[in-house]
Design a protein around this nucleic acid. Sequence first.
DNA 1: TGCACAGCCTGACGTCGCGTCAGGGTCAAG
DNA 2: CTTGACCCTGACGCGACGTCAGGCTGTGCA
Lengths: 250, 250
Amino acid sequence: MNVGEVAALAGVTVRTLHHYDRIGLLSPSGRTSAGYRQYSPGDLDRLHQVLVYRELGFPLEQVASLLDDPSADPVEHLRRQHRLLQDRLERTSAMVAAVEKEMEAHDMGISLTPEERFELFGDWLPEEYEAEAEQKWGETEAWAQSQRRTRAYSKDDWVRIKAEGEDVEARFAAALAAGVPADSEQAMDLAEEHRQQISRNFYDCTYEVHAGLGRMYLEDERFTAHYERIAPGLAQYVSTAVQANAARRG
Amino acid sequence: MNVGEVAALAGVTVRTLHHYDRIGLLSPSGRTSAGYRQYSPGDLDRLHQVLVYRELGFPLEQVASLLDDPSADPVEHLRRQHRLLQDRLERTSAMVAAVEKEMEAHDMGISLTPEERFELFGDWLPEEYEAEAEQKWGETEAWAQSQRRTRAYSKDDWVRIKAEGEDVEARFAAALAAGVPADSEQAMDLAEEHRQQISRNFYDCTYEVHAGLGRMYLEDERFTAHYERIAPGLAQYVSTAVQANAARRG
DNA sequence: TGCACAGCCTGACGTCGCGTCAGGGTCAAG
DNA sequence: CTTGACCCTGACGCGACGTCAGGCTGTGCA
């Protein structure tokens, strides 16, 4: 097949296929003597994978490395796509629910607080975040381990893990509110609990790695926002506690 | 509130807020004497709307004109967002189903055809398309009329309308396959039926407007792709028939 | 057999929505 | 009164294409 036909079939423009060719993401397996691009069925397979990952928000470069990874069989791609799509489903349903909540609020003449309204935009660890995370840490063993373990988790597991996490966060916030110093025994114990949670649920989190995470809580605005919305100053607090705990044990 | 706080609350970067200010999409209602941006609760409301529309794929310019439209009250925005989000839900579920179908096919050792695989990418009239359509035709009376009417349609209505549309398309394809000329009586009658369908279901479609649509079926690759996937040459065929019909009556 | 016209090619520049410095002022805490 | 977090305004960069421009190819039909 030549580019026009492929474009019509896949619902993309010819220019897009040119682009994918130039950046090496999808080069047709052949050319006619006149230089026309010739796409094989195998090329179509690959294009399909590309489009799915693209729709899920992955940057093209990342898509290329995913598809070129020799240790990743087709089934793994399908499983990953399935997981990401379900994340998106959940997030979209949540947004629908939020809009419906607004409508009800409006009908009853009341109005929501900014915090309620932005809930969906701050917190989330959704598809876009996953794409990002995989890009940032795609090479690390921790990430790989996390991927292997979490793949087996059921919805119930996730609920439990989320609850565990929120529990520790709430206790951090309470300590902060009570004026307990971030480098006190009590705060460090909470940090230790946090570290063990990560080790149990995601990957083997050493003190060193945990200290790195602590730093990131301040550097990455996304994490900072997450903690700050629970309580002002919490990002700094958790970060300090985590690093103090690492210094004490390490 | 100053920019950092707003950014943390809304889950965007400070740079994003700077950008929205510069392009006039969201300018804070005040500044301190030192030039610091000061956001009011009203500004937060607007930011929230911006983020929802942005997530739905609208270009920022279009978001601005939607939000600045004085004839659009908040309830209308909520209804539109609700509709678009449900479209997205449907599309995502369809993609989940498609991935599951692939998995099953793989388990049973069979493989799908390219057509089956790309089904979801070619056809669709989803959120992105809606954003586009509204951008292109946002000013026309036809679009406004269509929006007013379709707002009241139930899911059953949509199923019926889609079936009607596919019926005419199938008969066009049959005529094409049978070698019936595109400017024959028979083809023109089909075109007329097509025009009346649009008038009944969407907006008052004059012969002139219909002829314009016909031209677009060839110019807009998206429409071309839609018809070409039903049968090669069908875009040209329908286009010609529609314009011949318009010439005969107009 | 020639030609019109759709379809393909390769540059190359434009666009959108920000990211990312650079260079410099502001403000609260210690 | 300094330090460090936070704010400002340019200005350039980038990803993923869109959009010409200028030119070759392939085919239906007169």
